[in-house]
Design a protein around this nucleic acid. Structure first.
Lengths: 107, 107
DNA sequence: TTTTAATATTGCAATATTACGATAATAAAA
DNA sequence: TTTTATTATCGTAATATTGCAATATTAAAA
């Protein structure tokens, strides 16, 4: 069906899945790595760096923005995209909590 | 197109994306949490716990197995699924490395 | 050997994702 | 004001994912 049955899972499980889903594309990984390594993180530079069409990059940026992982600051005609450090740390902590909380009773 | 252009990204970026993708479903999060909390982690118990049809669970288990996150041990007619602790730790380390390596020069 | 129980696989319908051309929106520059 | 540059949105084609009924496979039990 292609439709995830979110209603049978709890909020935490759905939240984790959404975060993982946003990160589950090499272009979005590459965008994050590029943004984080540059002093100026202009959208157009990202398009040239990654090698996907401008609308495609714009869409990936939108998905990263949807969980506040990046912030876009308008600078005239351009937009400077930056990683949202607070959210970044928050997500890293959340993922570590998921990995750590998982105990291994069996086998 | 629906087809990810993996060839324009490096191996590390693609590997990270695949790991995130496997984790990007609440059912698979729930399966991992359930398996890790049980002494016996029989496939049928997972089906009853999660509330999805048996073939659907079987498919999700297959995806978790695809990156060796879980191991299925055959016990007669039943299969006992367990988390692969070594891979679990390895992936946690890899994700932390990704989060840590990302520096923030801009903004 | 036949039956039963547990799990995997196949096939398919419905929805989601990816990618991009065309175009709109926005703001600086001419 | 018109042009130009930059980014966002829309529409759409192609592929992927999700979920399940039907069925196959496997191994213990009868």
């Amino acid at each position: 069906m292609g439709l995830t049955k979110t209603q049978i899972f709890d909020e935490r499980q759905n939240e984790l899945a959404i975060i993982f889903k946003v990160l589950a594309h090499p272009a979005r990984i590459a965008i994050l790595q590029y943004i984080s390594s540059q002093k100026a993180c202009i959208c157009n530079d990202i398009v040239e760096e990654i090698g996907l069409a401008q609308p495609t990059i714009s869409q990936h940026l939108k998905e990263l923005k949807s969980i506040d992982l990046i912030i876009g600051e308008i600078e005239g005609k351009k937009v400077c995209y930056c990683i949202n450090l607070n959210k970044w740390k928050e997500i890293q902590t959340l993922l570590n909590s998921f990995f750590d909380k998982t105990k291994f009773n069996c086998c």
